[in-house]
Simulated assay, not measured.
Amino acid sequence: MKDFRKNLKDGLTKTTNFVKKSSEDVVEKIKEGVEKIGQVGPAAKEKIVDVVNDVVAVLPLLEQAGYRTNEFKIGIALAPVIEVSFSKMAEVPEEKLEALKKEYENKKMFNMILSMLNTANSLSRKLEADDFSFHETVVEITVPPKVSLRYIHRKLEPLQINLLDDEV
């Protein structure tokens, strides 16, 4: 358990550092949008649209890494939030993930989201919740970015969304 906590802490620290570094441009766009959101003028709307377009553009690319988008939501508030929920649809070998990161290294949003998804996926495999089944991973692109693991009580689960045969 001590090793798990240390590994979890190390993994979260690495992810936090990566997210801080790779999301610089995204955070700057959101900050600029927040500064202007009070006016809700054309410039503020354009900033929000730019960030949303950046996110939507990388969603098909993330499928190549094994993550299918279930839905996304846009929250317009003082700090705009883009919430995207994902299901793990395939196990992708580490070599292919590294190749994708290299191929899309100029797409900071892709690499930021992929890093968050991979960390969350690794964590979800280690968590034990007997009465609950893993449902989806939710990434919130805001200041600061956030990732959540959603579990549903087995007795209340309306349908199984898990797309991996070996995890059903």
Score class of each variant (00 low, 15 high):
128 E>R: 15
82 I>T: 01
56 V>P: 04
141 I>C: 05
145 P>T: 01
104 Y>L: 01
159 L>E: 15
128 E>H: 13
106 N>W: 08
28 E>Q: 13
155 K>Q: 12
43 A>C: 01
150 R>T: 11
35 E>P: 04
115 S>T: 11
15 T>D: 02
79 A>I: 11
65 A>M: 03
164 L>Y: 06
73 K>E: 12
60 P>A: 03
139 V>Q: 00
153 H>V: 06
93 P>M: 05
145 P>H: 04
100 L>D: 04
145 P>G: 01
118 N>W: 00
43 A>S: 13
47 K>L: 09
114 L>V: 00
68 R>S: 14
70 N>C: 02
79 A>S: 11
134 F>N: 07
142 T>I: 04
94 E>T: 08
72 F>L: 06
23 S>H: 05
28 E>K: 13
49 V>W: 07
128 E>C: 11
151 Y>F: 15
165 D>G: 09
7 N>S: 10
26 V>F: 10
135 H>R: 10
157 E>D: 11
141 I>S: 04
123 L>R: 05
164 L>H: 05
77 A>L: 07
139 V>G: 00
138 V>I: 13
8 L>W: 10
76 I>F: 06
121 N>G: 10
114 L>R: 00
127 L>D: 09
14 K>C: 01
164 L>S: 07
111 N>H: 03
49 V>A: 09
36 K>C: 09
79 A>H: 08
123 L>E: 04
